[in-house]
């Protein structure tokens, strides 16, 4: 029973890691750039959610606030790509790594200046509510997070498989040049992918804020854990990212319970290093050897 309880808590945490990892992978698939500011985008989304929903700020209903926050962050991310990152389109990956790290610093400073450096939490209608099922006590927030992640994944799956824009995104991620020849405006598609990634991380951020307090520096460590999730799943695979996130969340919970203190924080990274060494492409490898 104890283990099952831990498992559900871990899955709920893992869903948020998975959503952030999903944001990474979306951007990586489209432009082969790794966005080191993803964790800070989550933090920013969480603060936007708080600004819209909390009673002393925007005082919107929860769902409306969620939509507003994700639209805002989507627009911000779109603008970031359109006006900052497009300037280094086609430059080596290294440039993108450094640029996104710097953007993360900027986001952290902006959030700290607007909303302060003290931890704040989101006021939700379901805060603190608990469901008792048999011997299990489940937080309603955890269940909602799991449900929301499932829903979002399904919507994204439909989007990539069935819509014209989704297919265009897949095409430009597989081969930019060929996609361009087929009449896809690759640069604009890139910006839209950034916007989409912003929307996903805003939703993840609001869900995260519903579980605990956020402060501007929360993004860095969170981003690195989500990285670990994306790497475990194999960068570039959407289901892999979610699975990696779940694994990280569950392992973290179990390590915190059973491993000696000090070792438990290492567990997610140790798992990632292990996967990198044994299966460099991740669990769902996307790397194919080129035949010369």
């Amino acid at each position: 029973m104890d283990a099952l309880q831990l498992l559900i808590g871990g899955v709920a945490n893992g869903c948020i890691y998975g959503l952030v990892a999903l944001g990474f992978v979306l951007i990586y698939k489209a432009s082969e750039a790794v966005n080191f500011a993803q964790g800070d985008m989550l933090m920013f989304g969480a603060f936007l959610g708080i600004a819209f929903i909390n009673e002393d700020r925007g005082d919107l209903p929860f769902l409306l606030g969620l939509v507003a926050a994700s639209l805002c962050l989507g627009l911000i991310a779109y603008a970031l790509d359109r006006f900052v990152l497009r300037a280094i389109f086609g430059q080596p990956q290294f440039a993108m790594v450094v640029l996104t790290i710097a953007l993360g610093f900027v986001l952290r400073f902006v959030a700290g200046t607007i909303w302060g450096y003290d931890p704040v939490s989101l006021e939700t209608p379901f805060a603190g509510e608990i469901l008792s099922l048999g011997g299990l006590t489940l937080a309603v927030a955890d269940l909602l997070i799991i449900l929301a992640t499932c829903g979002l994944t399904f919507v994204l799956w439909l989007f990539f498989g069935r819509t014209r824009l989704g297919v265009a995104m897949q095409a430009s991620s597989q081969n930019q040049m060929a996609a361009y020849y087929m009449g896809i405006p690759v640069k604009r598609v890139n910006s839209i992918v950034w916007g989409l990634s912003g929307v996903v991380s805003a939703i993840a951020g609001v869900l995260f804020a519903a579980k605990g307090a956020v402060e501007p520096s929360v993004g860095l460590l969170f981003g690195i854990k989500a990285f670990a999730a994306a790497v475990i799943g194999g960068f570039g695979s959407l289901p892999g990212a979610l699975l990696g996130g779940l694994l990280i969340g569950v392992i973290e919970q179990f390590a915190a319970r059973y491993a000696p203190s000090g070792y438990s924080q290492i567990a997610p990274y140790a798992l990632m290093l292990l996967v990198l060494i044994l299966r460099p492409g991740g669990l769902f490898a996307q790397i194919a050897q080129k035949k010369v």
Binding site: I88, V98, A102, G104, F105, V106, F109
Partner: peptide, 12 residues
Amino acid sequence: MVFAVIIIGMVI
């Protein structure tokens, strides 16, 4: 923040 802005300018 200043550091980050210098870097953004530098990379671009």
